[in-house]
Design a protein around this nucleic acid. Structure first.
Lengths: 213, 213, 213, 213
DNA sequence: GATGAATGAGGTTTCATTCAT
DNA sequence: AATGAATGAAACCTCATTCAT
């Protein structure tokens, strides 16, 4: 309802202002949620930090859960879009993998708050506040994995990659490894420095470890 | 003075009974926590499901957080012990990796409730209820990774593996991939069947994917 | 930023209304505490009697103890001010003593509920809920006694009183006697009627009881 | 019921042992109550400190309140007896007053824990746990005051004292002054040293303070 | 439209008391 | 007779949400 804007009487300036406020609330909530966890942040706290009245929050979002879900989904969109730009463009598959690792690293750096929040609350099965959220978030992730798998599929078709495994499995594997290294970095940037060189990770898959007998 | 009687000081039956009750509470709590998340389960709910009075729970655990931490740490011990048995025994490194994947799969199967709980609440950085928990659990995981890395280190020393990467990084990578496949299975056992054959996963690292030009 | 509007910043009517509510809560709490004692009155009971929701109480006072301390300190202020008016004014010392007894009687009459509460919970050493309260309340009483002693000191300087004892001791003695008579009256107004005539008490100190041999 | 001992079957040793336990419980309770206040001491705490099982306490006392009342009444008896010995003996009235002050001081010294408890919980009107207690404790105090008043009455009859006031009022006054000095001493023994010399207090009443004009 | 005072359900925890052993 | 495990009512307090202004 609040996103319709084809009506003429509402001046677009009002509308833009509203969107700005909405984003401000979401940004504040993201920061707080990621610092203290969903259940340890009250709506009052969000309102106070965003410098709005508590009632105003309920003008934008039906309830706390709605605010949370919106927040997560919008952030997911950002990630999806960034990855799509890399993966869907034409080009060499090895370059794509390298770019993907680089872009994912950049996104983690830029959106650390969200990563923390996401990792803390949204993993696992269908429960928690995520009840309804998981369904869609999970689906989106699988959709992403399919597109990521296409890179391997194409690479194999072009004989750039060997067919050592199912492309989807390769996608799962490589993404989980990238995530692990990035999470370790977030966890303790000193002990586990940011993997500047994408190839450090890629090599784990490019060269097999098994010595020939 | 007043507890010493003619009975053997601490009747072992009483003690065993107490342990049984304790385990019952922990089991009930694990189920509920894993289904609904820490914050969505009340102590009353646990008491009712375990068929104890609420006060009895507080005889065993100082408070809700203590119950939760105990729960997680006891489960972690189980996993640690199972993995230690596989990794610390002498033997061929490739066999060890294969056994590790097999045992981890079996543990995930047997302790699904805990896996769900753990994935849902314990990831992420140091906040949430996990505040104090994270510190130790995280450390334990890194300790495990080091022992896992030793397998690769030894394998390299024996020329069983090629030195394509740092052993610790290899440990991180392989474990994250195993986890990913197991989590996908937990998530939707139909779409992502349980990886019966450990080699399916191992091959991802054994053979490189990069085709020689 | 969000609280500044076109209205005068803090509408005085709102503010006055708030103060009225606050006083209502304090008055209700005073009555209940004095009737049943601090530990035998629940916050729900106060809320119900004051016809507020329980949450509203916590808008005004951080917790039960805060409510109690506020209550006691505000009442103490009333007494301090009333006594200060009598003792600090210039004038004959005998008149001052007479006025003090009269005013104290009037205050006891008017604030019986508080007297009961104070006598019941605040005497004794430094423990109980009074932990922190005692410190200051006790100090205030000693401060008062010093000002009361000054009356005797001045009277002695003017040769209105004989130097039969330390002025501070005289202050302690006279005040305790006045309190005793007033407490007996509160205890059972029929058996121990209100000491209308201050001189009845003063005479106990004015004339010695020892017959000359 | 437990104090009857005319029956023959119960060996007196058992009976004596029981009494010893009872006293142990009461002594422990007195210490704890006086340190932390009635409501801040749990039955478990008393049981643990007295080294009895919680059930044993309920063999001796119907409930917590019963334990408290018994405690207070037994201590009151001690005081009553000590004062009676001084006041009811024949002798000069001035000596009696002096002895009374001395004995009261000694009793306060010896039974500080009880004094603290009594002052903290038992003053004030008829409420609190004292509900039933006050009735009798208060009556006992008035009975005492009457006996104390008799000293003044007798002294007046013998022309030892002047009839400057009602003997009962004199009793009230003198006792409240003695109490005040003793309480100040308990409160802060350094600032308000123990009034070693009874005459310091008696003089306040023996000599009038009013200077003859 | 925005505000924030007011609400009250529901959370965690304590502790007096009972009763099977 | 003594024990102490078990009970559950009831305490304090938080916070998502509503609605009169």
């Amino acid at each position: 309802m609040q996103t319709e804007r084809s009506q003429s009487p509402k001046p677009p300036r009002r509308e833009r202002e509203k969107q700005r406020q909405r984003q401000e609330i979401l940004a504040t909530a993201l920061t707080l949620f990621s610092e203290k966890g969903y259940h340890n942040v009250s709506m009052h706290e969000i309102a106070a930090n965003a410098e709005f009245a508590i009632g105003t929050l309920y003008k934008f979002f039906q309830n706390k859960e709605d605010l949370y879900k919106t927040l997560v989904l919008e952030q997911c969109d950002l990630f999806d879009q960034a990855f799509a730009k890399v993966l869907d463009a034409p080009g060499d598959e090895v370059v794509k993998l390298r770019d993907y690792v680089r872009v994912k690293g950049a996104m983690f750096r830029e959106h650390m708050a969200f990563i923390r929040l996401f990792m803390a609350e949204s993993r696992g099965a269908s429960f928690n506040i995520n009840a309804g959220l998981d369904a869609s978030v999970r689906q989106r992730y699988y959709d992403f994995l399919k597109r990521f798998a296409a890179v391997f599929e194409n690479g194999m078709a072009k004989n750039r990659f060997k067919r050592i495994a199912d492309p989807f499995d390769l996608a799962v594997a490589m993404d989980s490894v990238v995530n692990s290294f990035l999470l370790m970095w977030i966890d303790d940037p000193r002990k586990h420095p940011f993997p500047e060189d994408p190839d450090k990770i890629l090599k784990l898959f490019f060269d097999g470890i098994l010595a020939s007998r």
